[in-house]
Nucleic acid binder design. Structure first.
Lengths: 403, 403
DNA sequence: CTAATTTGTAAATAGCCCTGACGAAATGCT
DNA sequence: AGCATTTCGTCAGGGCTATTTACAAATTAG
């Protein structure tokens, strides 16, 4: 439900073609003007003028002459600038805070992270600590002569569609938190998005190439189980921006009551707490016993690695229920691929067989199931890249001449 | 997973603006050039030249002067031509064949239909009879001085994404049937699509206005239970074009075996056959006993109307299971509205309460549930309108001067 | 060293929309 | 009725965008 942006004026055309040039370089790698022209179907002349603008804006850079061994004059290779604007990404996790900056080439140029106990914490101190990290990263950037073009924050919760307010983040205990103006976004715009969404976008942009060839359902779990649906390279956000709530897909007709008000939700059987309970641990105590990013997940992975039968059985059970929910999703969406991301990626060796078995049993030809390449880093990287992608989408809006 | 059409040239811009003018009239009703200019954000001058082209192409027509009572020279009202190209729509149902033609204004200008027993029938005789109906309708059109701009066929089964081949239509017993060249499409292109998809599009284009304001999940059932997902006014088709298979969402962990190979699929509990079995009827015999379009559904509706407790209980049960599957879908998609279409619309009075009860029990705030305004006619109308919409999307491609 | 090939740019051209201005046709006030 | 006001549609001129055509520069192949 996004209003399709109408193409009316010649400026819109110009903007679209500027973006097309940049994406030709993003998707196909550095290339000469002539090669870019072939890729996007414009003439060399047109590409030349577009490139002139992009060079002046500091988004592209000439990187010497390329010679391919074939006859003809070699072209001057165009690459994305590594001196241009950077994207600031931040992640608010239940037990950590992280910030990073990526340049237009997608390289991480600065980062900072701390362990933190954000569970059931008030927003103010969390945002204050996060602001400190952001200032830290911004400092590193300006030292290197780079400038931030905006900030995007990944949160484990529901976010309104326009991306300024957290509606609900149960595991942080936040409700209706407006972030506008409360974090130093480096002059650019500030956006908030769900970590599952950003993890999926990261996988699309810089992860497994299979995600670029069709619709994707990207599952990710921290404590809750979320997912994101990518269609045609775009997120399906739904009416309120809450699409992808895989954790509340019913997998038992009459099952445990869930915090959402329902019964038999997947989260009650495959969520982190459910797995901890299944091996006889008190979830609340486990959080205290195994803090830090990947604390409980690392603990579970360790015991699974050691062959602990209780943990293996619990993960098999979780995988089976996840398989049921994914059957529902795959029937509804017919995705090209299913991706396990977030904390699930670290437990994939023990979850995957059960998930695949259940999918195979229930669907004639189930979509392939792959493990995220980015894992727990996905949301953070996705947030940073969301900023740089916004620059690429509208190159001259945020650009400024090279110094 | 549709390649986004890139906007490169000024011709593309022109095409987009021609379409914008037409859609301004479609969505906002007949209006003067100046009014259209206001609606789409172009200048009166630009709109004038666009309208000139559209008048010459026979897509728009001037309909006299409009006077609103306000000062100023009255504008000449522009309306879609009712002499222009028409869309031919056809529907292949399990027990009927239907064809209709709609003009650009959306009015049905010709139609033909017959009862037929297509269940488990070979494609050849069915296509032959359908071709006869199409010729009949085309004849009516040419008598009225109209010309068909293409043909779209609705089938109860899975269709490849490019819309030329039926992969599988279980209730017809068809597998891998290529329709290209086997039906008289009146010179224009021939397309095939799933009836659930076309029913949903019909609802979007000419049905309940709530479908136009956000993402929609449109459920429709003939014998199988299908659905279509509309995002941003576009169908979500999925990787192979099989998205929307609501009928195979699991609603029982260990349930009846289903033809799809799975267990506990919704279709086994809420499909037409399941309901017939639940009231003690043999589905195969019931088909023979109650033929024709709406045969079994009409029979069930009649008994429900009369207060038959068995039927009411069976429909309540089906509604409950449908509610479970819709909970899954609503959590994944966060749709703006859920629509019950197809044959379900006729049983809505008895299904709806159970569906709503289950949704309400499982979701804090469930999306509103509405009944399709078009019902069983949806797919046929959607098919016809798919053709006219294609004309509106690229006005000068298929156009020809007024005679 | 020459021919062939490819690259990048320049000049001229065509298409599209915008600005500004104008006559035409209605309303509303005197 | 007469006049000012408002709105509509069109015309002329101009700016922007991409294309066509042409050409100099730089490389490979023989």
């Amino acid at each position: 439900m996004t209003a399709t942006p109408r193409l009316h004026t010649q400026q819109d055309l110009r903007r679209a073609n500027l973006a097309a040039v940049l994406y030709a370089v993003v998707d196909g790698g550095p290339a000469s003007r002539a090669r870019v022209a072939d890729r996007i179907g414009l003439t060399r002349t047109a590409v030349s003028t577009l490139v002139d603008d992009l060079l002046a804006a500091g988004l592209l850079a000439e990187a010497g002459l390329g010679h391919s061994g074939s006859p003809g004059r070699p072209g001057t290779v165009l690459a994305l600038s590594d001196q241009g604007p950077c994207g600031l990404g931040a992640a608010i996790g239940v037990d950590h805070l992280a910030v990073c900056a990526v340049d237009l080439r997608g390289r991480v140029r600065a980062r900072a992270a701390v362990d933190a106990v954000n569970r059931r914490s008030r927003p103010e101190p969390v945002l204050e600590r996060l602001a400190g990290l952001i200032d830290d990263v911004t400092g590193q950037l300006t030292e290197a002569g780079l400038r931030p073009a905006g900030l995007c924050v990944a949160v484990p919760g529901q976010v309104v569609r326009d991306g300024t307010r957290v509606v609900q983040a149960p595991n942080l205990g936040w409700r209706d938190v407006d972030l506008a103006g409360r974090l130093p976004s480096g002059g650019g715009p500030l956006k908030v998005d769900n970590e599952a969404n950003l993890g999926a976008l990261a996988e699309l942009w810089i992860g497994d190439p299979v995600c670029r060839t069709g619709d994707v359902l990207h599952v990710s779990a921290e404590i809750g189980i979320g997912s994101a649906i990518l269609t045609d390279g775009l997120l399906l956000r739904g009416n309120r921006g809450f699409a992808g709530e895989l954790g509340h897909v019913p997998v038992r007709r009459r099952g445990h009551a869930c915090g959402c008000g329902g019964r038999g939700c997947l989260e009650q059987y495959a969520g982190e707490e459910a797995v901890l309970r299944a091996i006889g641990l008190d979830p609340v105590r486990a959080v205290a016993d195994h803090p830090g990013p990947g604390g409980r997940v690392g603990y579970l992975a360790g015991r699974a690695e050691a062959g602990d039968p209780d943990v293996l059985r619990a993960l098999r059970g979780a995988g089976t229920d996840l398989g049921i929910a994914l059957t529902a999703a795959a029937n509804l969406l017919d995705p090209h691929v299913l991706v396990l991301g977030g904390a699930l990626a670290d437990l994939a060796p023990w979850l995957l067989p059960a998930v695949e078995a259940e999918l195979g049993r229930r669907m004639g030809t189930a979509p392939p199931l792959v493990v995220s390449r980015l894992g727990a880093d996905g949301p953070l990287l996705g947030a940073a890249h969301a900023v740089t992608r916004a620059v690429l989408d509208d190159p001259l809006r945020t650009a400024q001449p090279t110094g």
